[in-house]
């Protein structure tokens, strides 16, 4: 039994708190709940489908193969010397992670209604756990990407050490969109119906299976407002040594930070009403 002195722990319940403040101390206190939400997601996912792991691999592989066949048929694409298969696959590795996280997270608060209306813990953990539980899949597909790179004889450089940085970038993109969409979905129950459509639009608007070079140069900075653009440019730069447009990367980073701040703001603002709305 933990015999902490009683005056040591005092908590005040008041109507409003600052919306932008994130109580890091509290997040840390409750961290085990987060681990368990992720662990539960993973456990259930892999328990239910033996095909689970296979599916994770097959999705980007099949998408890549189809596009490779199509584009080589139509005369190939200028991808800066990288085999198109690797180019597209690297795009899908990141995209599948963001896509799966966001679509899982979008309905997460509603799905975890029971928890949200009965127990207190930082609500951000709910959509964040979807982002967290996507990580093993990301690592798995990344591993396959590395194997494929070896197969195609792409030389790894020291820049490969920067890969984690871009994975973190991907995580932030997934997290910000997840926070935003999941909280909106509590308030507006039809959000979940437009999510698949929006994700599809987002995919086509991102240089996943086509190079940024397809976009006229003067539009590229606008294109970079989409965080995926800079993310993929940077990711391919550290993997394949493609040319990097630093302006594009910079705009995407700033845009990601702004979206994250906005998402936290919206989430915090709506958070207090979750239990009443669900």
């Amino acid at each position: 039994m933990s015999e902490t002195s009683k005056s040591e722990y005092t908590f005040k319940i008041k109507p409003e708190e600052s919306w932008l403040r994130i109580d890091l101390k509290e997040l840390w206190q409750y961290r085990e709940v987060f681990y368990l939400l992720v662990w539960r997601d993973l456990k259930v996912r892999y328990k239910q489908t033996l095909l689970g792991v296979l599916w994770v691999i097959l999705q980007p592989v099949i998408a890549t193969l189809i596009l490779t066949v199509i584009f080589t048929k139509f005369g190939g694409i200028e991808t800066g010397g990288t085999p198109y298969v690797l180019f597209a696959f690297s795009g899908f590795v990141i995209w599948m992670y963001v896509n799966t996280s966001v679509s899982q997270a979008s309905n997460s608060l509603v799905y975890h209604e029971q928890l949200v209306t009965k127990i207190y813990f930082p609500r951000m953990f709910v959509p964040a756990s979807s982002v967290g539980s996507g990580l093993p899949d990301l690592f798995l597909t990344l591993l396959i990407l590395f194997v494929a790179m070896l197969f195609y004889g792409v030389l790894l450089t020291w820049k490969i050490l920067l890969v984690p940085l871009f994975l973190f970038f991907a995580l932030l993109v997934a997290l910000s969109m997840s926070l935003l969409i999941s909280s909106l979905n509590v308030r507006f129950r039809d959000v979940k119906f437009i999510i698949p459509f929006l994700l599809q639009v987002w995919m086509f608007a991102s240089p996943i299976f086509y190079p940024l070079g397809w976009v006229p140069e003067r539009f590229q900075p606008i294109f970079a407002i989409n965080p995926i653009t800079g993310l993929l440019e940077g990711f391919r730069y550290v993997l394949f040594g493609n040319e990097l447009n630093w302006v594009v990367l910079g705009i995407s980073i700033i845009s990601t930070i702004l979206i994250l701040v906005l998402s936290i703001f919206v989430f915090r603002k709506m958070e207090d009403d979750f239990a009443d709305l669900l």
Binding site: T4, K6, T10, F11, I13, P15, E16, K118, A275, D276
Partner: peptide, 20 residues
């Protein structure tokens, strides 16, 4: 629910001097 921090009060406050 307010004391459990699941919903927020509209006004007033509650102070808990202990792990809840």
């Amino acid at each position: 629910k307010i004391l459990s921090r699941i919903i927020k009060p509209t006004s007033g406050e509650a102070t808990l001097h202990g792990r809840t």
